[in-house]
Design a protein around this nucleic acid. Structure first.
Lengths: 181, 181
DNA sequence: TCTTTTGTATAACATATGTTATTATTCTAC
DNA sequence: GTAGAATAATAACATATGTTATACAAAAGA
């Protein structure tokens, strides 16, 4: 009937994700993606109408990747805020391009930062809510402050303006958490 | 002897700065810049060896612009940290592309975030140091925490994830300052 | 084996970009 | 006024990009 498929959609998106991690979203071009996937540009446009659609799916995939990262992150303290902070800051440092892509671009296709944090499984908010419930005063206020703080540290690590070790980070997060509480 | 100059270096860099503010550094291309300055691309390359050199000078100019912004910012409290925070967060909201360019790009040509803050006149550090001196415990620690917090809020405003009013921001900054102190 | 169908590659088109060559313009000293 | 020189515009070259048209290849039923 017809020729067999040798380039799958998965191969394309895998290559795109690798390219994204290595060089950032603006370097995920049709030709570079084709080269990464060892094919011509045709298979890309068989699966996606345009490169924008590829970026769309990359955003999706990156959000899931962050969720997995957070889910598998080794919790080191009993304070969810501290754990979240450690994971988030480490993610920013280890996956700069991914972080920049989903947490620092204006075009996140509608998702707010909190949408990404909570994800489909909503793990972040689950942990944090239970934690905030035990908190003394205004739980929302505590979350806002901690979140601003955590996001700030992560963004600084992106530009090389943050160079604390893991344990220093933990202490910093603990400190600020207790300050805010 | 020779033809008179009609396109000055200042006209070029002014146009480039306007373009930077409106569309971001990646849109400051030779042709768009020429159009903005109402000339051909030739005058650009008379003053600058390459477009990279233009970007270099834009970074310089943007740092100065931030300094001026901060110098002229109406101080609303007696707490330098709060004033700095208000100015920085407002700057991020009002000049997103400039903020992104100097505080969020990896290529700041060597300047650290603190270099920019302090600038040539060193106004920020002057105010903050005197303030920290009055502070109770570790002045550096207080600065680090406040700065992370301030930077976090500014970065969130960039992506539309921060929507507090000026007075709410002031209260937030006051609160966190007293928490950290 | 031939034809049809579908996947893939190659090549092309249109546009955008940095940069440079060529041409035209305009000033001034002579 | 003319020649020389600096300035600017136009056009070109080389490359990069999204996207599409065309050509080639392979699989499977007739």
């Amino acid at each position: 009937m017809a020729r067999k498929e040798t380039i799958t959609k998965d191969m394309i998106i895998q290559a795109a994700f690798a390219l994204l991690q290595e060089e950032g979203i603006e370097q995920v071009t049709a030709r570079k993606l084709a080269a990464k996937a060892n094919c011509s540009t045709q298979p890309i446009f068989r699966f996606y109408k345009s490169m924008d659609e590829v970026a769309e799916e990359l955003a999706e995939k990156t959000c899931e990747f962050f969720q997995d990262y957070y889910d598998h992150f080794q919790r080191q303290t009993v304070t969810p805020f501290v754990n979240l902070g450690q994971a988030y800051i480490k993610f920013a440092g280890e996956h700069k391009e991914l972080f920049r892509f989903i947490f620092l671009s204006p075009e996140r296709s509608g998702r707010s930062m909190y949408d990404i944090l909570n994800g489909s499984k909503g793990n972040v908010s689950k942990e944090i809510q239970s934690a905030a419930a035990q908190g003394s005063r205004n739980a929302g206020d505590l979350f806002t402050k901690m979140w601003i703080f955590i996001h700030g540290a992560a963004c600084m690590s992106l530009t090389g303006d943050y160079d604390l070790s893991d344990s220093e980070t933990m202490q910093l997060l603990r400190d600020s958490y207790h300050s805010f509480k």
